[in-house]
Write a protein that binds this DNA or RNA. Structure first.
Lengths: 154, 154
DNA sequence: CATATTTAAGACCATCTTGTCTTAATTATA
DNA sequence: TATAATTAAGACAAGATGGTCTTAAATATG
């Protein structure tokens, strides 16, 4: 698997938040309901994103979480880095420590190129990019496609 | 992590076997010694590769495992498919079942391209390709670089 | 044929990831 | 101020992966 489940859930939730126009606090319970993710588990994941300042949170009634920066200023690589770490984008495909141009493994060259493609994709894609695409095509971010991208207009 | 440890170990062992010119049976114990991999664990992994006919094995003294086909006819994707399965190369990056051109997720387009790059890399790289590179540059397939690519000449 | 060596098979345990639950702290609001 | 709602924190359970060990089956060789 490329990304852990935690990371995937984090990305889906970030997309959810980025699709909200007014950027008000939204409760994790609502997010977990709409995205069909276990609420406690999602809470733990979003706490991590709050800790690294991708989200901000507020407790109590009317509390919840929201993006700390605008969606067009948050790229996927930041979410991946926060949850899965940068290992995928830096480590050797054969698992050899210190593998690099100076001390490569036989697969290093090929994998370095491929790895850079992944990195570029994650760096070049913002939350807003995906929200735009999602709203235009009414695409799904849940298994059953129940998420509605509301509100549709900004 | 892109590939599981089992898969990485399987690839390293396959490289080891492909680097042997005469393709005689080599005991798993010797491989595990030279590559510094737990012998029992490696045995289990190589059994899997034997099961899918990438390797063939013989029991008893002078027994061991060897490549069933020539190294230039075995690509990395076969090893990955045998051990980790094809999930990495077919599944949605957001984990949505049935994600594809017909019913995409917002990230589908980008990820499909990137995924194809990974696939192409694994499909285009043969064991012999890596052995050649390894012998030419005396590159390592162990953490400490102790593997010697013997014999150097074929 | 007896023995030693090797793979095959699977039980078993450790560690990591995934997921659940409980309690505490915070805060809006009646 | 009391209450209810919410995040924060962390203990705990379940499941997957990584790794060890034991026993059985096969086989080369003395």
């Amino acid at each position: 698997m490329l990304l852990s489940k935690s990371c995937i859930y984090g990305m889906r939730a970030a997309l959810y938040l980025a699709s909200s126009s007014n950027n008000k606090y939204i409760s994790i319970k609502q997010i977990s309901n709409d995205l069909d993710i276990s609420p406690h588990f999602l809470t733990k994941i979003l706490q991590e994103l709050t800790r690294v300042d991708l989200l901000e949170s507020q407790k109590g009634p009317t509390g919840g979480v929201r993006l700390k920066r605008a969606g067009d200023e948050v790229t996927l690589v930041e979410i991946v880095a926060a949850i899965d770490g940068m290992d995928l984008l830096t480590e050797c495909a054969l698992g050899l420590p210190g593998c690099g141009t100076a001390k490569p493994c036989p697969l290093h060259e090929q994998w370095a190129d491929t790895r850079d493609e992944i990195k570029k994709m994650l760096q070049d894609t913002t939350l807003s990019d995906l929200v735009r695409k999602g709203k235009e095509g009414n695409l799904r971010i849940t298994a059953d496609g129940s998420f509605d991208w509301l509100p549709k207009e900004n």
